[in-house]
Amino acid sequence: MTRVQRQVILSKLGVFRELGILAALVVLIAVTALSNSRFLSAQSVKDLLLGSTVLALLAVGQTIVVITRNVDLSVGSVLGLSAFATATLLSGDSGLPVPVVAVVGVLIGAVCGLVNGTLIAAARVPALVVTLGTMYVFRGIDYTWATGKQINAADMPTGFLKLGTATVLGVPVLTMFAVVVLVIAAYYLASYRGGRELYAIGSEPDAARLSGIPVGKRVTAAFVASGALAGLAGVLHSARFGTVDANAGLGLELNVVAAVVVGGVAIFGGSGSVYGAALGAVLLTTIGSALPVLGINPFWQRAAVGALIIAAISLDRALVVRLSKALRARRNRG
């Protein structure tokens, strides 16, 4: 192999990782469709995409945080808070237009993210602890506010609910929102200084500090982004289901972390892409709907997701070890 070829392969390694998930997804869909042709019906595909949308959005936000060597466990609660706020505003007689309410939902998420980020960056408390705490705090606020109430689809404006089911050429509008967000996030992370600095921080925090990167500011911004996306996900959640209570998004945070890890984002930061994480979200959602179609016991569904996470992490470790061995063996010097 010539040096150039090898370089190309090395630089494409990340892409390979994403192609791997895509391949797994294709195989899973093909096998399921062969056993039950209705799995690929327009309605079924639409459900699958809608089901993936919220998880994928959260996975994009989580990726932004994880590449900085942090984690955001509060996203499920933030989603719940934003979903309930959105539904409350729309069901009442405030008369606020839908876009304004959507912005409010996003802002609620951003504020939650700011709380997380400030505690982590300024008080120097590990993200795992802070977001575990705020996960309960945000959910508690949600419960206190809802006081057991449920907001029903009947109370919501029809325009908003239609948004939840509308499709263009068979693709749900909500999914298109998520794809736009995904592309913007990917482009920012790849092509802006602020984005690259997030990778630098996760790759080696001390070196980032010595390079003059404003680590605290960047990490806070990452949490604000993650919170805002969870807020947006909350808006989409209430548009999709119409019926919202204080339990919306309960326990979702672990699915999100799972999607991110399966999607090839290094849990210790520094590498991975939002595309991979979004694919991970689609794969997990597809497993969730394919396995019942294949007649597999629900217990095994969970076990399959677990096995996938462990396999993904092991694969990533193995790739890193092999990569550094290969890089060390040939020092690439002329």
Binding site: Y192, A200, I213, G270
Partner: peptide, 24 residues
């Protein structure tokens, strides 16, 4: 004090990358 996950070129210009239109 390098970033192991980033390329050598990125390591050198981190935070000071040359930019084109729109700050890219």
């Amino acid at each position: 004090t390098l970033f192991p996950d980033l390329t050598v070129a990125e390591n050198i210009f981190m935070g000071r990358q040359p930019r084109r239109s729109l700050g890219r």
